[in-house]
Design a protein around this nucleic acid. Structure first.
Ligand SMILES: [Zn+2]
Ligand SMILES: [Zn+2]
Ligand SMILES: [Zn+2]
Ligand SMILES: [Zn+2]
Lengths: 141, 141
DNA sequence: ACATCATTGCAACTTTGTTGCAAAATATTT
DNA sequence: AAATATTTTGCAACAAAGTTGCAATGATGT
């Protein structure tokens, strides 16, 4: 069995020193539960941390396998917490993502895995992203 | 049967006035055959057109169903020509996209359609994007 | 508590994207 | 073919997003 790691333990597990910025930004992800864009984080902690620190923290978290990126069509990449199996250089986020056109929330649909795609000869996949957009369960009337 | 429309006919078909910028940018897409980012277009025609014109032209083309957007994880949305069926407000680009990590080319794999995804209750899809990245057939050794 | 090493904030800068408006180009009418 | 109406373009000015170097601060292990 498996208990959820504390913020601090998560940082330590990935060999990161424990700083205010990292604790704070990581807890934003935990509390929100959904994906966040750089701009979201900046708004929620603007007085506390420099913009540059947020950029560098997100980059570090991606490299260490703490968060993963979610592509978008509007030049605003989002980030969401990885599952425990992800590690530096080895993400295992094979779930699909859902972006609600109304409320803007981006969900990791962990239960639904990305289907295997048969590519033309000579093409080799290292990663597959599947992003669905539409109306989420909170926004449907 | 079905012959390929000329640049000018394509613009007219979508009720756009025929201008140098539009002809030029549309032919960049035709000639390249693959997807282009704003930055690519700006480099290939920087002296000729203002940056603002390129932004507005791409936006117009998307609205009119001439090109479609391809999401990305690095804040650089790409654009590629639609098939003939697309029209203003009604895109029908249900193919997957492939981004090569080596040469950077983004391909529309028109033969491969995006699979239907069964979503949790209350979620309704209006669009699905599937992006594979890896090594393309030109870059494999 | 000290020394070492990593992280942060700041400043300065580059790149990317947006808006209003006058000038130029295109389309439409006469 | 000229005149008019409509659209598009370039420019300027700006706002937002992202990058880099470096000194100061903070974290870690002994
Ligand atoms: Zn919603
Ligand atoms: Zn996810
Ligand atoms: Zn390639
Ligand atoms: Zn495409």
């Amino acid at each position: 069995m498996h208990t959820k790691l504390s913020i601090i333990d998560t940082l330590k597990k990935h060999q990161l020193s424990v700083t205010d910025a990292r604790k704070n930004i990581l807890s934003l992800f935990s509390e929100s539960g959904n994906a966040l864009a750089h701009a979201n984080i900046e708004k929620q902690s603007s007085a506390e941390f420099d913009r540059v620190t947020i950029y560098r923290t997100l980059q570090t978290f991606v490299e260490k396998g703490i968060i993963h990126t979610i592509p978008s069509s509007d030049n605003s990449v989002k980030y969401a917490l990885c599952k425990d199996e992800c590690a530096a250089g080895h993400h295992h986020d094979d779930h699909i993502h859902f972006i609600c056109d109304f409320c803007g929330i981006t969900y990791c649909l962990d239960q639904i895995t990305v289907p295997k795609i048969k590519l033309p000869n000579g093409f080799k996949a290292t990663q597959t992203d599947l992003i669905v957009s539409g109306t989420c369960n909170k926004c449907e009337q």
